[in-house]
Nucleic acid binder design. Structure first.
Lengths: 232, 232
DNA sequence: ACCTGAACACCGTTCAAGT
DNA sequence: ACCTGAACACCGTTCAAGT
């Protein structure tokens, strides 16, 4: 990952048509590479310009400010979300969970960006319009009423966001809860959290390890079971 | 909210015991006021020092860097979470939802801090140890096995985080989805999201307005129903 | 130990000027 | 329209020096 270096000498003035050195798309792609490789803090306007071999100010002709760059990145990420094609031969439960998995995958492809993506309401609601269709479809097939569909979709999206946030905040895909949690629990004043203490101890003895994949699946299963019970 | 102004002249050197002008607690409380009033970006070390009437560098004797200040704020927020006292006379379902409400309330008391709070894994898991006990207790009373309890608690926390993130990102407590959503949906290419389009249209006609309170409650109800179906 | 002042190596963005 | 260079008003943090 070599730095493209200084903008080079002179070369000022408007480039001829077709010779533009920059575009919104090219800028966003470069920004995404920086964020993926080195995190949000490394993505400064000056750094971005430097990797593009361009004057920092040039970027402002394509995007109004730094916030717009980040918003554009959120857009990019959701644009890469794989569309779940309608298929009446799968159970609505599977259509729902497949859609949820695609959503999770899109976010975790760029963990350094998760915080930005999940908190950028504008970007989120823009894609919600497009990416949320499979959720609507699955629940419609299940036979829910419009108001119920909206409720359930919101709940699933909230779960997806919370889960993705947690997943992105941790580097490893699987890690042992046991030592960390046991140490914390041991440090607690006697009787302060008795149930927690007991549950963790019982699990600790059989060797608990948390992994995100099964945590994700069990969360989805819980919600699906809730839908079946409440609305069918 | 008047600025406390410049550190004042001279007054250098170590203060006598009991005359310290600063403390970790005082610094964090000042930082929280800034964040609550003007947001995360306004909370700079120099600004913080200025409102404390102190040299910017003084802060570094109590907290190692800016990140530590933010981490301390996350701590503070969860410290304000109201403990749910054990009470066997309430149904476990109510104990669970009451605990969830307390968690939501703690986060939304400082919306500008939500992003930091929810993504600071260290802070989150530190309080999890203490604040998660009521969730464990309720599910234990319901009769779940340890492994099931952990699964369900994680799912609820994920939902809480996703929900809180969304709630914090919006200024108003209630807002009309209709105009915004209808506009977006109208702008869609024909047939691109047919179910969404239909569902939104049906709701739009009877006048949909989303409000966070009922969205929260219906999410909780869904999860509780899932627990009852899957594990009881 | 606790507070200060000057300094370093950065930022995002405005503005005037080039073609 | 698109790119540049200099400048403005900031940052977080290190370091040496005070008491």
């Amino acid at each position: 990952m070599v730095n493209a270096g200084k903008p080079g000498p002179g070369r000022s003035g408007r480039p001829r048509s077709g010779e533009e050195r920059l575009s919104r798309q090219a800028i966003l792609e470069a920004a995404l590479r920086i964020v993926d490789a080195e995190g949000m803090d490394a993505m400064t306007m000056r750094r971005l310009a430097s990797t593009l071999g361009v004057n920092p100010m040039s970027i402002y002709h394509h995007l109004p400010n730094k916030a717009a760059v980040f918003a554009g990145l959120a857009e990019l990420v959701f644009g890469q979300l794989e569309a779940v094609t309608p298929d009446d031969s799968v159970r609505w439960q599977d259509e729902l969970t497949n859609s949820a998995r695609a959503y999770r995958d899109a976010v975790r492809a760029h963990p350094n960006l998760a915080l930005q993506v999940l908190s950028d309401t504008a970007a989120v609601s823009d894609v919600v319009v497009v990416t949320v269709e499979p959720f609507y479809r699955a629940l419609d097939r299940a036979g829910l009423e419009p108001r119920q569909i909206v409720e359930v979709v919101n709940t699933i999206i909230d779960f997806l966001h919370g889960f993705s946030l947690g997943e992105a905040s941790v580097q490893a895909e699987t890690f042992d809860l046991a030592p960390d949690l046991l140490r914390r629990v041991r440090g607690l004043p006697e009787g302060k959290a008795p149930t927690l203490t007991r549950v963790v101890r019982e699990l600790g003895e059989i060797g608990l390890h948390y992994d995100f994949d099964s945590g994700f699946e069990s969360g989805l299963a819980l919600i699906v079971a809730g839908v079946e019970t409440r609305f069918l």
